[in-house]
Design a protein around this nucleic acid. Structure first.
Lengths: 201, 201
DNA sequence: CTTGGCTGACCGACTGTTCGGTCATATATT
DNA sequence: AATATATGACCGAACAGTCGGTCAGCCAAG
């Protein structure tokens, strides 16, 4: 949370180690002690950089979401037609998430955690939502541009944007239980083709 | 695990209570003591019916997956064309999962747990996989019938089946953070329409 | 000498599981 | 019918292990 003075590289090392450990053992079962060992520092030092386990969760979420948003915005600003832009965005994000490998497990749990927080009325402090909405906005803009350019059919933008994000999450979800990269690639090609066909005029 | 003599209604009550508590507090933070209170029995009695917390997870998974499989198989055996059958299967499952409400949070965590078990090499004891595969088989059969009847285009069955399951998971995932039922319905209609259009010849 | 980043032994709260005992009910005996 | 006996479901206090977080001191640098 607090911008740390100290050694920012060490904060980074802690985050990386935490991702390792939490992915392997789960958010609750993952121990601070193990994170410290993985990061090659003492347990107490972890608390010099993060004030609690929760804050580490928070930092991990921002790190991972940040990567996705950066990649998406970079792609968005490229010179590409809406059709190709959307196709690439979906493919890129899906592969990005898939290749996060074990981090996916963390995001899955953090997602459930966020959903619980929302159900409890704590609509604040769910950085997930803001991140997802950022990408959703990009998608909607691409869709609108595509309709304008007659590359896409008329549509309900919210519905299709949801479908689009659902595609990414759902696809990765399917392969969490079966990380056969080859099958993933095949399915992804067919899936994107089918999805894009659904948007044709 | 063991088929219990004793009062089966009580085992059921425990499962129901456990779903409540785990959905609210999470798989790890949900306490056996709270489950007992919710079920209106003593803490010790829980262990007369289930030998461990893990076994309760297991039972919950089978209960929920069982419901989904039953509904899917029932639909599958109905007299309907492939196009309508697939459309209905997707819609039904998506709504079923959405309406599980808080149980979705449990399934999400169990999914991550299962993925971890698989990564650890314990390919057994992941009832999730068998359940998912059961439904996937139904989908593939419907797709094949549809291609045969020229209701669907030629396709890679595995890829589209994955897309189909991804649709359900992903859609619900999107609405975990935003349980606006009206928006959900709208998006679902548009999503299914778009998806089905992608399968047309 | 002083500063402050670093450390790990330690503490205390927490919770899954156990187990000896209670009690309602069923069965046997008179 | 009334009483004695046996059964096993039920209970919750106690236990034992676990872990997040703290803090008193160490050590390297200046």
């Amino acid at each position: 949370m607090t911008p740390l003075q100290k050694d920012p590289a060490k904060a980074d090392a802690i985050i990386r180690a935490a991702i390792q450990i939490f992915a392997r053992d789960g958010l609750e079962k993952g121990k601070i002690a193990d994170i410290a060992v993985e990061a090659g520092i003492g347990k107490g030092t972890v608390y010099e950089y993060f004030s609690s386990k929760d804050e580490i969760f928070h930092a991990i979420t921002e790190t991972i979401m940040g990567d996705m948003i950066d990649a998406s915005e970079k792609l968005y600003s490229m010179q590409l037609g809406p059709y190709d832009k959307l196709r690439t965005l979906i493919r890129m994000n899906t592969e990005l998430v898939f290749e996060m490998g074990d981090s996916v497990l963390i995001m899955t749990e953090i997602w459930a955690q966020g959903a619980r927080a929302i159900r409890r009325g704590e609509h604040t402090s769910v950085p997930l939502s803001t991140g997802v909405n950022r990408i959703r906005d990009l998608v909607i803009n691409i869709l609108k541009a595509g309709v304008m350019a007659h590359e896409f059919r008329e549509m309900n933008y919210d519905g299709v944007a949801t479908l689009c994000l659902a595609f990414v999450d759902g696809f990765v979800f399917q392969f969490m239980l079966n990380d056969d990269k080859e099958a993933f690639d095949l399915a992804l090609i067919e899936g994107i083709q089918s999805f894009m066909k659904g948007l044709e005029p």
